[in-house]
Design a protein around this nucleic acid. Structure first.
Lengths: 125, 125
DNA sequence: ATGATATATGAATATGTGAGCATATGTGCA
DNA sequence: TGCACATATGCTCACATATTCATATATCAT
């Protein structure tokens, strides 16, 4: 039996690549993580929390946004395990979940710095 | 002249925080970077390119998607300076723009691994 | 208990976006 | 030149999502 589509050089490479790719679920979780980080409001929240623990109302004031909007976004950050919450009286104190959230941040900063200003050359146009 | 809103302890903290925050434009660029990374298709493309340089058609075959869809996403990745393109005959060869794209990736992986499986405890519910 | 304060959540809406289709551009070959 | 191949790009639509508004829940003070 001859296969209907002959195995070209390229096809062999593709098959090798496919086997070298991480599990789809891992990639999906990675995309989800970055997706959560890919919003200015959430970045601002995380940045603030990287300096100090804060209550919802404090974040709201700092960012000049409604407590409701902040609370919604904190929920997203919580579900992504990027922030952690401890109750204190009527307030909820939010903090970065752990230090490598900061590390991911730093890497991002480094990239932004490294490739800024935009338009350094035109090989990306 | 007495200010209409008295400067509370909290307000002072907020003012300090505000001054400690990076420039809004920097945060915006950071959010943009993560936003580009926050898509499964683009993650799969970057992951493939982290293994080997590839042509558009090869990526399309690997991911079982149309060349058009891949080309669209490669444009986004190009504009974010995450991939670089060199022409070779009729083809376009794509590659990761530089190594710290890989580093950002690795940090992401580390986070995903570290906090997986989901539901380890319920402090994030 | 009652009211005041802090946060959380549900619904509605406006904005953004990924993929498909059609088409354009560009390259190699007869 | 004319054709085939590889990639790029408008356009459109279905779907996702960030904020607002209204409301619910929880805690403290009187």
């Amino acid at each position: 039996m001859v296969p209907q589509t002959p195995e070209t050089e390229s096809t062999r490479s593709i098959n090798f690549l496919a086997s070298a790719m991480p599990a789809e679920e891992t990639l999906s979780e990675l995309a989800d993580l970055f997706h959560v980080l890919g919003d200015l409001t959430r970045i601002r929240i995380l940045c603030a929390l990287s300096i100090s623990e804060l209550r919802v109302s404090e974040i709201a004031e700092l960012l000049s946004m409604s407590s409701s909007a902040i609370s919604h976004q904190l929920r997203v950050l919580r579900q992504a395990r990027l922030v952690r919450l401890t109750r204190k009286g009527r307030s909820s104190i939010y903090a970065l979940d752990d230090d490598h959230v900061r590390t991911i941040f730093d890497q991002g900063f480094r990239h932004v710095r490294h490739s800024a200003p935009w338009g350094k050359d035109n090989s990306h146009a």
